[in-house]
Design a protein around this nucleic acid. Structure first.
Lengths: 225, 225
DNA sequence: CGTTGATGTTTGATCGGCCTAACTGGTGGA
DNA sequence: TCCACCAGTTAGGCCGATCAAACATCAACG
């Protein structure tokens, strides 16, 4: 009987109103969630049936203990995520909340804890005025171009490595082979062979062959465009 | 004519198949997206009508230039987000992709750039074996309890500050007043007064009054539970 | 008390995304 | 050649979330 994301939103909204000291009303919920009152009534009916809140006809909206617990979990995730995206990543307030709104339904407690620990550690660094954090911030304020994966580069084109999105062994292999941001790549070509094709190019004067796995993990800035 | 999130998913899936060197088929798409072929046919019809790909009856599925561009943008976001959540935050592969799947539709280019810059800076630190990064990692591996906001604490209870989720002036004020992780708070009480209530408690032997804004930004670990 | 305005509910409809079941088209053996 | 099989399509229906419009209830005031 797992809740839909939207139903979690309604729970969260009820808690939000409750926290501000009022009793949640249909009108208030409709306003906060940006839907009509009819929609709220329908949603509350479902939540009442699931015993997450009590809502009698024309009556108050009151969270049950289970409902309150679920609502708090969602609310907490939302606040932590929004905090993370604004304070650490510098998203706009609005965007941070949008992102938090969709992510809050996709993470579990464990994930939430990791995220919180990360945020807290960076917040601590901020209080201590750590220099590395400042460098990091500056780096984030000078926006780059957006790269494209090697496997989508045009025949014969060149580029500069932007990043490598790979984990584990593949990442190690690529690292060991010298695939790091800033390195030039030229004469990119694709030929048939392995499923997915074979990609050849030149790096540091050497000819190199890639399969699709490598070629989609290495992202390049295009020189002109 | 903004695309729905789901439609973006279909575009992304087509690009994904194309990148692996094959031509996207209905069956392949159905498999990758976890839906039936009937559903794919319907989605492709819409995408064809929007001129994002070409799909004639019983024909191949080919992205148009605009479709390819949109697909790449979504794909790139997905890969960057997944990379960020696995490499930097240590999410499981599966969870990282789930989260990426919902977030990829909520961020714009600017936001994507910030995120990428952040990831890249941390990846650089990782290559350099920076000590602060290692500390941060250790911190993330020792999971904490999950806190609750001061305004939801029980009458008369106590706790330890876990974090402060506030920005700008409010954050500064709370910081200046000594609200930092680890500080003890006791004798929390709520009374009427301002809209949202007035919260009183004791910190460092001093009695303090909060409105709802402050009381929902300060998160506490409960001592027992 | 009765009227009135705000609050809440019901009804009937749409829309996107999905499914099952039945159908059509294309193709490679026997 | 024709049949069997796989790929793709169509038709019809379901579900969740939403809306507009009409209706019901409440509360407060004269």
């Amino acid at each position: 009987m797992s809740l839909t994301a939207r139903v979690e939103d309604y729970l969260e909204a009820v808690l939000d109103i409750e926290m501000s000291g009022e009793v949640a009303t249909v009108t208030q919920l409709a306003k906060n969630l940006g839907v009509t009152k009819a929609t709220v009534t329908a949603a509350l009916k479902k939540l009442d049936e699931s015993r997450l809140l009590v809502h009698e006809r024309y009556g108050d909206v009151i969270l049950t203990p289970e409902g309150r617990e679920k609502a708090l979990a969602v609310y907490r995730r939302h606040e932590f995520l929004a905090d993370f995206f604004t304070r650490i990543l510098g998203f706009s307030r609005e965007r941070a909340h949008n992102v938090a709104c969709v992510m809050e339904h996709e993470i579990d407690e464990n994930t939430e804890r990791r995220l919180a620990a990360f945020t807290d550690a960076l917040a601590l660094a901020e209080r201590n005025n750590e220099t590395w954090l400042k460098e990091l911030r500056e780096c984030m304020d000078s926006p780059n171009e957006l790269p494209i994966p090697l496997c989508l580069m045009e025949e014969g084109s060149s580029g500069v490595i932007a990043r490598v999105t790979a984990q584990y062994e593949l990442r190690k292999r690529l690292n060991a082979a010298g695939f790091s941001p800033g390195v030039d790549i030229s004469d990119i070509r694709k030929s048939d062979g392995l499923p997915g094709g074979v990609f050849t190019f030149v790096m540091n004067g050497m000819g190199i062959k890639f399969g699709i796995a490598e070629a989609s993990a290495v992202w390049l800035y295009q020189p002109d465009k």
